[in-house]
Design a protein around this nucleic acid. Structure first.
Lengths: 288, 288
DNA sequence: AAATCGTTATGCATTTTTGCATGGGGAAGA
DNA sequence: TCTTCCCCATGCAAAAATGCATAACGATTT
């Protein structure tokens, strides 16, 4: 019979479109992926992926193989979750993902106390913009700024985060006097897709004619820019405490904070205790 | 992530109970299987199979892994069928399985003509007692002596096979005179589970007190024994033509002959033409 | 048009996996 | 009790897979 792992390689290529991208996702070399695909197709006697200028694209035969390979993947991930979900030790690693500011400002102190209480458990705090998959066990717990929809998840609301429009005192001294309200202000924005976040949309609505002083996906860069008198930033209240920045207005676009994990790992003791610690440790309000 | 092929190894061990048996089924060495299982469990950090005096048995964690691995297998087999089922060439190999006597006496002449007509197609005629799996593509077509139940098969009735109770003239000369009917006759039987075949049950019912002269699962051995005056055998009528054996009675336990293939490969041209050749070439009646 | 970036193919060295052979440990049978 | 058979573990050699380096190709930009 055919090596099941060849289906995984095939799936990766079909998803990413190129051998190189698939190789990166599987943490092997491009040459490996390419040779395995060739061997796989040779054994089947069928071409599954056709090389085009834009990368690899599925043939009709590849289409049906793709659908079945996805079923294999679902079963493999379920098995992985089910097996590791049986781990009842209060030891080992927990991978927790969330956004950088929440991690640094609010989660770190909680995790410090948690580490004292459970020395056997190591928390790996992963921050980043891309959402890691709980289904494929890239992470165990996730603190997200939106209510997750769909999927086989167990969710728990941790609170709300309120945002405000902030500027430095010296920026305001220079601008508020000689400009009519809302015009000719300079704003600090997100870059790319993140500009569609509710609070950032509120910022744009409030200052539709404002110049963009700076774009950055990093809240810390935005905060620093704001402190450096570059303009008005939309920042979470918890982030601006003790910075001396002036809050011009509330954003009225609160974001809910949710703790998410997969149902298959829900009963794992070490996840339960961390979940509880986060739930009781995080005292979040809108900040108003 | 985990090598998907490790799930296949695990599945084989769980099914066969020993490393050696699993290794045989996968056509690798026992040492390979054993080392892969060890590595697999080490990576998962969980014991899936426990070694007992009677072989390997699933742990609770192994149970859930087993269920998911079976789903992976089903998807893998479906993919294999779907892919190879797209083969539209009137060339290549067809694996046809059936029982030995049918193959030798009735199928071979049909296949001889078929080979002339389609020189590009090679038929591999596999005979044996164990039923090969069409679902896992161990075979493409199967001629069976019973109507298959369940499964995703396309079936077609080819006819009926009638059986009779046969004996040699010299055996009868010696026995029918000095024994009352049905008593003290010597019968030739199947061995093991095959004794439960309808026609063999009929044989036993007819001669409940008969001595067992010989047991064999081979119809050809039974035929030879019958010719050698060893006793009464239950044989298909088509097998006894021109042998000089005397038919004492019909068995009244006809067996239906069915041609079976998997739905996914049903439209394959080369299977279609062989199916048609078998259907028109086999002129089967009960022989009465 | 040239340059740059990202891609795939291929030869070669290295690493990893597998096969093979052997030894030890039970269980069934003589 | 002593074979005999089948099982698993392990060292070592052979084979296979992988990584690495490089070359060729195409698209996009300067």
């Amino acid at each position: 019979m055919i090596d099941w792992d060849d289906f995984r390689n095939f799936l990766a290529i079909a998803r990413h479109g190129t051998l190189s991208a698939a190789a990166r996702s599987l943490k092997v070399r491009q040459s490996t992926i390419g040779r395995r695909l060739s061997a796989f197709e040779a054994r089947l006697g069928v071409l599954l992926l056709q090389k085009t200028p834009r990368g690899f694209v599925l043939t009709p035969a590849g289409d049906v193989a793709f659908a079945e390979a996805e079923k294999m993947e679902a079963a493999a991930m379920a098995a992985d979750r089910a097996i590791t979900g049986r781990d009842v030790r209060l030891e080992g690693e927990i991978r927790l993902t969330t956004v950088e500011t929440l991690a640094a400002e609010l989660l770190t102190p909680i995790l410090a106390r948690f580490a004292d209480k459970y020395p056997g458990i190591t928390v790996k705090l992963i921050t980043g913009t891309e959402t890691l998959s709980l289904a494929s066990r890239e992470a165990d717990l996730s603190v997200r700024l939106a209510r997750p929809s769909g999927g086989d998840f167990v969710i728990r609301k941790l609170g709300d985060v309120g945002f405000g429009l902030y500027a430095s005192a010296s920026y305001l001294a220079e601008h508020s006097a000689n400009t009519p309200d809302g015009a000719r202000h300079r704003v600090i924005q997100m870059a790319g897709e993140s500009a569609a976040f509710p609070e950032m949309v509120a910022l744009t609505r409030r200052f539709p004619d404002g110049d963009i002083a700076l774009r950055s996906d990093s809240r810390y860069v935005q905060l620093a820019a704001c402190k450096a008198d570059m303009g008005i930033a939309c920042l979470a209240h918890y982030l601006t405490a003790n910075t001396g920045l002036v809050c011009l207005a509330d954003c009225e676009a609160d974001r809910e904070v949710w703790l998410v994990q997969h149902r298959d790992t829900h009963h794992m003791p070490r996840l339960k205790v961390l979940s509880a610690a986060l739930s009781t440790g995080l005292r979040l309000g809108t900040g108003r």
